[in-house]
Design a protein around this nucleic acid. Sequence first.
RNA 1: UCCCCGAUAGCUCAAUUGGUAGAGCGAGCGGCUGUUAACCGCUAGGUCGUAGGUUCGAGCCCUACUCGGGGAGCCA
Length: 571
Amino acid sequence: MSCRSGRDNTCDRTGQRHRPPGRPRLPGDNDCNHHRHPCHTCDYVMPSSVFHYRSSVTRPTIRPTRSFEYYRQMVSISQTNLRLAVGNCQSLQLHFEQGLLEKVYMNIDRALIADVLADVEVGSEVTIGGWIRTVRASKGGFSFITLNDGSCMDCIQVVADKELGNYDDEISHLTAGCSLIVCGEVVESPGKGQRVELHGREVRVIGLADAEKYPIQPKRHTFEFLRTQAHLRARTNTFGAVARVRSAMAGLIHEYFQSRGFLYVHTPVITASDCEGAGELFRVSTLDLDALPRDDESNIDYAEDFFSRPTYLTVSGQLEAETYSCALGNVYTFGPTFRAENSNTPRHLAEFWMIEPEMAFCDLQGDADLAEDFLKNIFAGILNKCPADMEFFNKRIDNTVIETLTHIAESPFERITYTKAIELLEAADCKWQFPVSWGIDLQTEHERYLTEETFKKPVIITDYPSSIKPFYMRLSDDGKTVAAMDVLVPKIGEIIGGAQREERLDVLTERMEAQSMNVDDYWWYCDLRRYGTVPHAGFGLGFERTIQFATGMANIRDVIPYPRTPRSAEF
RNA sequence: UCCCCGAUAGCUCAAUUGGUAGAGCGAGCGGCUGUUAACCGCUAGGUCGUAGGUUCGAGCCCUACUCGGGGAGCCA
């Protein structure tokens, strides 16, 4: 058997161990590149798409129990895919023997339910794979199976006739959660609620799910319960939709920046600097916590640690992004961020994703302009890219999301200074729990009033007092405020925090010292101001908060696959 | 971390305020059906979050803890 079979890990040619494509290298792996070469028996070259698609994850394997004729029929269903997969091979039989057709069957020849429901013509033959949502079985006639494969919100209805060979043994016992591969004809549906349905010519049961134990029952579940089943919750309508919107939104964000010439910079996850003083940090260490090395004064000896100094998980890539911005112009980061704060709210995570653009030769106005244009693009884009999922959120989660996103995309954000905001709050007919006066940090109640009551749309507040903002924000000529801006949106509150950076070395070091920081630790950051300094600005956008806002999902733990929060890191 | 609320069947909840546990959904079996949150009947399923305490008696009252939710702070 060839090393390309995927079952035999030893190459019959080189004798080396063959690491399946996609699986990370493990100790003992000695990669064989044989599979990249033309097949020595038939000159076949495996298309790269096949390799990319192969997953290392163990999954059910369809044994080639069918006749060769059967596979040829299967393959004839989609000639395009056949050509892609089989290329210039001389003999289908040969590849069948080598297990290749099995791969075709498992990897490429599967149609997506989204495509079948939307595009595929009545009368076509397709093969789909998915997980059962509901079954309505009949002892007499046939069963209706609704199947979902995650490609879209909707399920396809599979009609399984009792004439099928495995009807009594298998199909009549199917329950929610079972996985199937179904091959059949797309027919017009006489029932309501769908354009087409699939008449199963073969319904192959791949994996069973014990109905007594399977947690995702065909009924309404609370999000609290589904959080305890995070490994299975993607099989529900809501979390499938969240996953699709999240992915689409990540794509939109990259598209936005890439199409405007922003460079994607990968800033480090492990950092030695507590860059903004932005809250508690997670420590990164290889020291033995039960036997910490001590120096002469019995302090912990970090010289013994992996990096020979205290290190942490990043709370922001901003400072590093600034360095690249001051060389390459416009850059952005998009990566994980970690905060060890003991925050227990529906808007906080210990591990979340943040987008941080940074622009050289840019001031606060340019920064705010980008923030507004960016949000409008993303929100308009997601309505355009995920209409069915957004429809679902609007119908089942929050019936204002589509209206709100449309409104945001079309109308300008409100822009006011901090000073003006304070005036508005002081004049408001409200009893504040936290009294309002110039110099205070705005509280949630104040932010919500401005964005939900006064303006009823996103508000950009600029020019905050320097005393409540970090050292790197540019000091204004009045000496009292800094060139900071926050974008506030209804319900979520602060979704973006940004600023024009202090580009004057003397002012910067003065402010660092005023905040009791050790300037020497930031020598490289100060170098930017020492050598060819330039006005620059940027902001940070919470990815999960953006998804929350776009979907209407109330709890941030439900818009990330595996939320990390205090006392909670299951899965 | 602070304040408030909650934890009862696989899930969502109820139990007349201290008298020994019930419904819907889900599941199993049977019936019916081009059905689509299908429908009808029957059946199974619970050390009432954990540990103490009060009481003749605790799901219910008290204390502590654990977990979950909401609000606040910190922030994105």
